[in-house]
Design a binder for these strands. Structure first.
Length: 374
DNA sequence: AACCCGGGGCG
DNA sequence: CGCCCAGGGTT
């Protein structure tokens, strides 16, 4: 695939005209979003992290709450990590929050509350890749750095009629070159946001509104009628089935949670096992029974809760047999492991989790109450 | 290059 | 139910 070159017939004046057109459209149609109120690099940074793989509508309330609790980078740096993670519950991709917190500590220690106008500093921060670097630098400091994300990728490849896959290999290079080539020398941040805003509001993945697009008359995909083919559809991801088991029997000690790989017969890993090392090759059921027996000194013969997880979608097939076994022991109760922490079933009622998890939580809570375990 | 991470919205 | 979303890190 060729490197980025302007289409035949384009001059620097054409490019300048298109830039003006897009910026004017942005001025008229930009959404009023909370992180667009000013050019505070901290607010912009937080918004960009939240917006990773997450829709604008989903982010807005989280952004408001987060900024109310952690209004400055110093406030975030001083916060407890569990407090930060609680503000993230329901957003997903929790590593983003940990990286953000860690990076805030680094920045606050080195620069206080005055975030540096220095790409080299930002590029070293955990969780800051090429996109967030360009986004923060251009929006907060008007530095001339490009951004490429799902929207601008679609806009640019349609605009210039790129026929390869701009997400991989040579296509990735091409789209970053294109994003850099179209940048104006002023209002860089606005221009980057205009590309994304156009992708979000007009140049949508399916059925783009080319009739109202401010740059349609310079768009190769529009001219050739190839909007549906550019960019090419993403390859379907293989569905991997994983079986997980979560059990804890608390008597001062916690036992837990292993995960089986696709072969569904062996332990893939153990996440936290203060008690109950799994023997290699031991089945889930056998190990949990053995550990439960050791802790309760009762003969626990029934199996554990089984949790089936498919890619991206979580489905549960639950048996409450282990809970019943615990009830027989009389003095124990169960906990549930969710989003990286141990959660008491009682607290799961208000825990922000997806609906399948919610059903599991409700079931556990109900069962626990009936069994007077709490 | 392939894979992992999460949850919601939408057709 | 399957695809998509203001990506980055790890292997």
């Amino acid at each position: 695939m060729p490197e980025f070159v302007l289409p035949a017939g384009w001059t620097s004046r054409t490019l300048a005209a298109v830039r003006r057109k897009l910026l004017a459209w942005f001025d008229a149609h930009r959404r009023d979003l909370p992180w667009r109120a000013d050019r505070d690099p901290y607010r912009i940074w937080v918004s960009e992290v939240m917006l990773q793989q997450t829709t604008v509508a989903a982010v807005v309330p989280y952004f408001e709450r987060f900024l109310a609790s952690f209004p400055t980078v110093a406030a975030l740096a001083a916060a407890d990590e569990q407090a930060v993670l609680r503000h993230w519950e329901g957003l997903g991709y929790y590593r983003r929050a940990r990286h953000l917190h860690r990076a805030a500590k680094d920045l606050a220690a080195a620069h206080g509350d005055a975030l540096p106008d220095d790409p080299a500093v930002w590029a070293e921060l955990p969780g800051v890749g090429p996109y967030i670097l360009g986004a923060v630098m251009s929006q907060a400091f008007d530095r001339k750095l490009p951004i490429v994300e799902a929207n601008s990728l679609r806009v640019l490849s349609r605009w210039f009629g790129y026929r390869g896959d701009p997400r991989e290999g040579a296509g990735k290079k091409w789209v970053w070159k294109a994003a850099a080539a179209v940048l104006p020398t002023a209002r860089v941040g606005d221009f980057n946001q205009a590309l994304m805003e156009l992708g979000a509001l007009v140049c949508s993945p399916t059925a783009p509104a080319c009739g109202t697009c401010p740059v349609a008359k310079w768009c190769e995909a529009n001219r050739l009628g190839l909007q549906a083919q550019i960019p090419p559809a993403t390859k379907a991801k293989k569905t991997v089935e994983v079986r997980e088991v979560a059990v804890v029997i608390r008597d001062g000690a916690k036992v837990l949670l292993c995960r089986r790989g696709p072969d569904a017969s062996r332990w893939a890993n153990m996440w936290e096992v203060p008690h109950g090392e799994a023997v290699a090759g031991e089945t889930v059921e056998a190990a949990v029974r053995r550990v439960a027996r050791e802790l309760t000194r009762l003969d626990v013969t029934s199996g554990p809760e089984l949790v089936t997880i498919r890619h991206g979608v979580t489905r549960f097939a639950i048996t409450m047999t282990c809970l019943e076994a615990i009830r027989k022991a009389g003095t124990y109760h169960s906990d549930f492991y969710a989003e990286g922490r141990w959660v008491d079933p009682h607290d799961l009622k208000d825990y922000p989790v997806s609906s399948p998890q919610r059903r599991l939580a409700d079931e556990l809570t109900r069962a626990s109450r009936q069994l007077r375990l709490i």
